[in-house]
Design a protein around this nucleic acid. Structure first.
Length: 874
RNA sequence: GCGGACGUGGUGGAAUGGUAGACACACAGGACUUAAAAUCCUGAGUUCGAAAGAGCGUGAGGGUUCGAGUCCCUCCGUCCGCACCA
């Protein structure tokens, strides 16, 4: 048979057209069918897709296609996270409008994604920068505003004085703006916030229900939310030492049990008490300034030295009016957490210990670790932070840490200071409200108006969307909306007086916090179509990068709840989770190459000589040796990039997809290698050959099922059914590398049966070929479709159900079980699957190697695990 | 510093507490070919041995178990997250 090579690039285009024309992957609004919502994190339209996208979308597509074949009504949409800074940077650098730039990128990337052959429902495509999308977001904002979930407050921000913009914490590097390099200032600005803290408890509690999320992500979110149970404790101040009018200081503590170990109080440099005290003390003022400057810089973290300044103010211990403690301003106390003030117990907290040693403050052990003697127990420079028995603590002595907490807490609650209870139990969170104001152009306008008479007034809903002006300028730093000559001028929706629009736009994380909801009804006139949302949500499988473990996923979880509380969404289940299963895939990595001049080189710019240890890289243009560097995440800066377009044009999309799924477990990093891709390419041809051989040898489409099968045919059928079963399970569990191995194994089994003939074999071979095509279908859909046609079927494989396996073929009559003597494998035993324990035991003891290994010792015990193993103990 | 994950052949990696190394890559030998590519077959953890076979083997050390890559403890190494959260 003159086999022709499978021409991937040619056939792939063909099948993509067929799928497209047949609208095969359009999700159906038939809510009687069980649904499956498969979603990959939508991309930012940066210009071109990269290998990370290929991996992410290949995985999602395998899952989506598999679920379709399993009979689910699959929603598998795609869109664009299209607002953001890069578009504005492009506008500044290249004098192109952010919208023009963004939509051109979207066109390019849509084309690239289509060339991957993804089973996407493109009729649901959304771009967050389109007014069709953001007008709904503005409506949601207005509803959040009504419910006080959106609000304005003054807060400290990182201000870049060159770019005239607020920077997120992660955009501040070593105290400087990531773009301008200017020293970042702390400014007090009025900003818009979402009250995510109102949901802190629920967001934390419901993490427990997310059993199909990686443990790691749940842990990261739990840490981020950072719940702690403690107390607010008010300390009286010695008025002789305190600034006028200040009579008390409130601290937050999680350890009221250690109050008798207290040796100082400390407040943040920005604490009102520090500011008041600094007014009369120039040296203190200078110290506070210094602390502020060191704020976020790395130098500060490296120094990590606890430093403080004694304000001279004295506080009175809540349990002993005669006991006074110094109040310090300390650099390690954060104004943003708790009350911005602490009490220090050096024996029970390492930071306090460091501080006490530096400033020579008393260290009184109050907790005795188990196994220590109270008389001899001392602490050097290491605090004891665990539980134990209370000592040196008067009425708490002898109690456990927990009991002491309760005893101290209830006494503080009963005690009064200045007419109010001195202590109050308080749950505190690390999580802060989400600041969404950005002084940028390319984002969703916040739909409010500032009126001199009425204040902040929401825009009327009939006036939505508030669209971005087309004619903004990007030639200088600062907010193009704020300096636009006319855009912001309007009238007050309430009183009609002249007013100005809000010129802040929303953080782009807002856009991506509800896109998965919009996909369920992307053309709905309201932001959410409740019926569609209730059917499709939650997302059954969400796939994306671990880099979004905290922010995007937490914001989305918050939004699902906020949309539910504003009546947009109803959840069928009792938790309001948007993503019931999450999978975080690893990165795509590649070797790096450097020229002799120290420049990074593209993989395409080098060729190789030798192999193994003798493998060398040569720079093609100069012919000079190049250095082979470490394997790193593909990045523009290190130039270790492979362009998906090149790979698809050369090998085909199926090849790129197959390689991405092979070998490396999907949650781990994968190393992109030329040899690996070539191997995937060879496998494609191998599958094609196997299918062609069978199609030619057995051209009949519907063979009658033989009455019985000979040994050879039976073994082919067993391999086919077993493999189909395994591949299905592997895909279901997102273990694509194992699914690939299952397919390889099946091909090897088919190859071994090559050349066998007979009517039973013909039936088995055709069945095997159809199964093979089915199982590669989700992973290499074009090749599978071509093979399906080659086998003579005139249906589309994409519409074919996943065949049912015959359970009888999954089990063998004979099983091979290992036989161990004292835990060491000595032989194998082939025996009937239904053999009972006695038969297995007897057969095992007859084995020559077993007798030899026993060396004449009597058999003490025989452990038989049916169908698995026998262990003879002697 | 705290928290987490991981550590298996030359390489990527398989393995519900039950035959460690499936599958692939790379490698070696053979077949086909004038030759090469492609393809097909065979081999291979390591040590001893011609072979049969035996010893040793999942970062190191200990423990639980009839049986441990898998569970527990200690240590070493790599990677990731958080970064003074009171």
């Amino acid at each position: 048979m003159a086999n022709e090579r499978y021409n991937a690039p040619d056939r792939e285009k063909h099948w993509q057209q067929v799928w497209d024309q047949g609208e095969i992957f359009k999700a159906r609004e038939d809510h009687a069918i069980p649904k499956c919502y498969v979603l990959e994190m939508f991309p930012y339209p940066s210009g071109r897709i990269h290998m990370g996208h290929v991996r992410n979308y290949a995985m999602g597509d395998v899952f989506a296609r598999f679920k379709r074949a399993k009979g689910f009504n699959v929603l598998h949409p795609m869109g664009w996270d299209a607002f953001g800074m890069p578009a504005e940077n492009a506008a500044m650098e290249r004098k192109v409008h952010p919208g023009t730039w963004t939509y051109a990128n979207i066109d390019t990337m849509r084309g690239q994604l289509k060339s991957m052959g993804l089973s996407l429902d493109w009729s649901r495509e959304i771009a967050t920068c389109s007014p069709d999308y953001y007008k709904h977001q503005q409506k949601l904002f207005l509803d959040l505003l009504k419910k006080d979930i959106a609000y304005r407050k003054s807060s400290k921000v990182n201000w870049d004085p060159v770019d005239h913009t607020v920077l997120a914490n992660e955009q501040v590097i070593d105290g400087r703006g990531w773009r301008s390099g200017a020293l970042v200032e702390q400014r007090q600005l009025t900003q818009w916030f979402f009250k995510i803290t109102a949901y802190a408890d629920e967001l934390l509690r419901d993490l427990d229900t997310l059993t199909h999320w990686p443990e790691k992500v749940r842990l990261m979110q739990a840490n981020w939310i950072g719940r702690s149970e403690g107390m607010l404790v008010r300390w009286g101040l010695d008025t002789a030492t305190a600034p006028p009018g200040l009579i008390e200081l409130e601290v937050y503590t999680t350890r009221p049990d250690t109050l008798f170990g207290a040796s100082f109080l400390a407040v943040a440099p920005d604490h009102p008490l520090a500011k008041a005290a600094a007014e009369k003390d120039a040296k203190l003022a200078e110290f506070c300034d210094e602390c502020r400057r060191l704020g976020t810089s790395v130098a500060d973290i490296e120094a990590a030295e606890k430093r403080g300044f004694d304000t001279g103010i004295r506080a009175v211990h809540p349990f002993d009016p005669t006991w006074q403690l110094p109040v310090f301003v300390a650099n390690f106390v954060l104004m943003e957490y708790g009350t911005g003030a602490i009490f220090g117990c050096p024996s029970g907290d390492q930071r306090d210990m460091d501080f006490a040693r530096r400033y020579d403050l008393p260290v009184v052990p109050v907790i005795l670790p188990a196994g220590e003697d109270a008389k001899t127990f001392t602490l050097k420079n290491k605090a004891f932070e665990d539980d134990g028995v209370m000592i040196n603590s008067r009425f708490l002595d002898g109690m456990s840490t927990k009991a002491a907490f309760e005893a101290a807490a209830s006494r503080l609650e009963k005690q009064t200071l200045n007419g109010a209870p001195q202590g109050q139990r308080k749950v505190n969170f690390r999580l802060r409200d989400w600041g969404i104001s950005r002084q940028r152009y390319w984002g969703c306008p916040i739909p409010v108006v500032h009126c001199g008479v009425c204040g902040v007034v929401p825009v009327a809903e009939r006036d939505l969307p508030i669209e971005l002006p087309e004619d903004a300028t990007f030639d200088k730093p600062g907010n193009p909306l704020a300096r636009h000559p006319t855009w912001k001028h309007t009238t007050c929706p309430s009183c009609g007086a002249p007013a100005t629009r809000e010129t802040d736009t929303m953080d782009t994380f807002v856009d991506s916090s509800w896109y998965y909801v919009r996909f369920t009804a992307p053309h709905s006139a309201t932001p959410v179509d409740k019926v569609a949302a209730q059917y499709w949500l939650s997302v059954d499988q969400y796939i994306g990068g671990i880099e979004h473990a905290i922010l995007h996923l937490l914001y989305s979880r918050f939004f699902a709840r906020a949309l539910s509380d504003t009546g947009h969404l109803t959840f069928a289940s009792n938790t309001r989770e948007p993503f019931s299963a999450l999978f975080t895939q690893g990165m795509v990595t590649h070797e790096t190459y450097k020229s002799q001049d120290g420049y990074w080189l593209l993989p395409n710019d080098v060729r190789f000589e030798g192999e193994g240890n003798g493998r060398r890289a040569i720079e093609i243009s100069s012919g000079r040796p190049a250095a082979i560097g470490s394997i790193e995440k593909m990045s523009k800066s290190k130039k270790n990039l492979v362009d998906p377009d090149d790979i698809i044009a050369h090998y085909g999309a199926d090849c790129a997809r197959w390689f991405m799924l092979s070998d490396s477990p999907p949650e781990r990093d994968v190393i992109w290698t030329e040899a690996g891709v070539a191997g995937a390419g060879r496998f494609i041809q191998r599958v094609w050959r196997i299918v062609e051989d069978i199609a030619d040898a057995v051209p009949e489409i519907a063979l009658p099922r033989p009455q019985s099968f000979g040994a050879d045919a039976l073994s082919v059928r067993k391999a086919a059914h077993r493999s189909l079963d395994q591949v299905g399970r592997s895909i279901e569990a997102l273990r694509f590398n194992v699914a690939v191995a299952n397919v390889h194994e099946f091909c090897n089994a088919l190859q071994a049966a090559h050349g066998k003939t007979g009517p039973d074999m013909a039936f088995a071979a055709r069945e095997a070929a159809a199964f093979l095509v089915t199982m590669i279908g989700p992973m290499m859909p074009h090749l599978a479709e071509e093979c399906w046609a080659r086998l003579g079927y005139n249906t589309l494989l994409a519409n074919e159900p996943w065949p049912a396996v015959e359970a009888a073929l999954l089990v063998d009559d004979q099983v091979t079980i290992a036989v161990q003597v004292n835990g060491k494998r000595r032989d194998e035993l082939v025996i009937s699957r239904t053999a009972n324990t006695e038969e297995v035991e007897a057969a095992a003891l007859r084995l020559e190697p077993v007798i030899r290994a026993l060396e004449g010792r009597p058999v003490k015990k025989v452990i038989v695990v049916p169908q698995r193993i026998v262990n003879v103990v002697g």
